[in-house]
Design a protein around this nucleic acid. Structure first.
Lengths: 267, 267
DNA sequence: TGGTATATTTCATAGAATGAAACTCGGCAG
DNA sequence: CTGCCGAGTTTCATTCTATGAAATATACCA
């Protein structure tokens, strides 16, 4: 099973880990966009532990609302406690507070979807999204994660990382369902270099056709790229001719925001 | 410690629970809006277990990004994994999908904040929020939870529960920081009865001054109230004179939505 | 009715999780 | 400079918890 690798790769060197807790987290991580509902047996098979053990883990998680059980069908889903906790986790991300006014401003000016993302385990994780007010728009939302190497949000961070780190992300493609386009090593490096030269990342239908996006990196005061700000929209509104203007304007906002971030110590 | 009661109240009858996992969940639940960042010793004191144990639990949680550690100060916060999982948990709530178009419609029509909430452990938990497009608005957001008995969202559900169940919620005020106004048993029951007669719940500065809101219940096909739809805004725009109109219009939408929900089997 | 697939309970045993204590590290004050 | 203090980390023997096999229960379908 692909999953077992995942478990080891995640830095689980098994020393100093509590096995029962690790397994409970495995149970939670079973649920994903493809399989949002699972029964006990399915979970047991996926993580390869005895169903009796899974039963006890699920009971423990359910009591605290980390999973909920469909009373009709008996399948388990992720619980409301996660939503509640996510709210707490996200409210206290400093960069979010600082970027929000800029995101609103960009959203009002361009009327397209604005994404604030970080790099999390090789994937672009959207910390915050302000949706385009227009009818045709991207349906991205907070908490969603997409492969970093094929989104403007992800590439804006990767390009300013040391090249070996960025490559490591490309190599460890433990994305649950592999997207159609994983670039070659060379194409990827070339893209990264052009992005650095340009100052902003570009994504023209990299992951999904019909979507264009530009992104700029946001840096911690020590210079490491920690997040990215991106504008994304349907290709017909963000044509290749116009996208350059978007990128350059985003760059100005990015610079201003980065100046501000320099003054903030702990991010 | 108040906390220990909490632990028992949560239905932790200790049979069929995995202790290590329970403790790990205790660690996660330590973090809240008041104390978003904690160090190991603080956590150890809060949940009353040995710091060596907490150390191992935190290490396990950190490896999987359920908590993250500030590299400077060493304090722990909730991790990004929770945001990611919340996205999954929330994407698959049937009622959310069905209510969303109605919420958008209400938002466009009234230009106020629209809340979709459920009752979760005696608190109103916002499944989804569409913010008012106006400058002055409520800053509520998805995942936030507020005391059920003092919000329109909460009361819209409570009023259609059996009275003893609703009272149980009032009694078990294990809200982390008690809001200024907990109604008396009588006032609460009277409010519930009026709400039922009226068809929609009202909240005029119940929790916070300057906020007015109205809410209607949403029912499962078997008739149990499972969620509520509410319009909330600053008092000066939602005056007591106008609020009746809001309520009655919301009622129409609520009825329509409830007809739709009857056709959906599993919620 | 019997058969299958799933969930739940029971129980003896292994070994995992635990907490005491020792150790490390860094900061601070005398 | 040195020694104290608080916080975090590691070690290790012991206990009792978590485990999986098997038995039982439940639900569904033929």
């Amino acid at each position: 099973m692909d999953y077992l690798n995942n478990q080891e790769e995640n830095g689980n060197d098994s020393s100093n880990s509590v096995r029962a807790v690790d397994r409970a987290l495995d149970v939670l991580l079973c649920f994903n966009a493809q399989t949002p509902a699972l029964n006990m047996t399915q979970i047991s098979e996926r993580i390869g532990i005895h169903k009796s053990t899974v039963h006890r883990l699920l009971a423990t998680l359910e009591r605290r609302n980390f999973v909920r059980r469909d009373p009709e069908t008996g399948v388990y889903r992720l619980g409301y406690r996660l939503l509640q906790m996510a709210y707490l986790s996200q409210e206290n991300i400093g960069i979010r507070q600082i970027a929000l006014p800029y995101m609103r401003m960009l959203n009002e000016k361009y009327r397209e979807t604005i994404d604030l993302a970080i790099l999390d385990n090789g994937e672009a994780l959207f910390l915050d999204v302000i949706q385009s007010p227009q009818r045709v728009k991207l349906a991205s939302s907070m908490g969603q994660h997409l492969p970093a190497f094929s989104t403007a949000s992800g590439k804006a961070i990767l390009a300013w990382l040391p090249e070996e780190e960025a490559l490591a992300v490309l190599q460890n493609t433990n994305i649950s369902f592999t997207p159609n386009i994983v670039p070659t090593r060379e194409a990827f490096l070339e893209d990264m270099r052009e992005t650095r030269k340009r100052g902003y990342s570009l994504d023209c239908e990299g992951l999904e056709t019909g979507i264009h996006a530009v992104g700029v990196p946001l840096f911690r005061s020590d210079g490491t790229p920690i997040a990215s700000l991106a504008i994304a929209g349907p290709a017909f509104r963000m044509e290749c001719s116009k996208i350059q203007t978007f990128g350059e304007e985003l760059l100005v906002v990015g610079n201003e925001l980065n100046e501000l971030l320099k003054l903030v110590p702990n991010l």
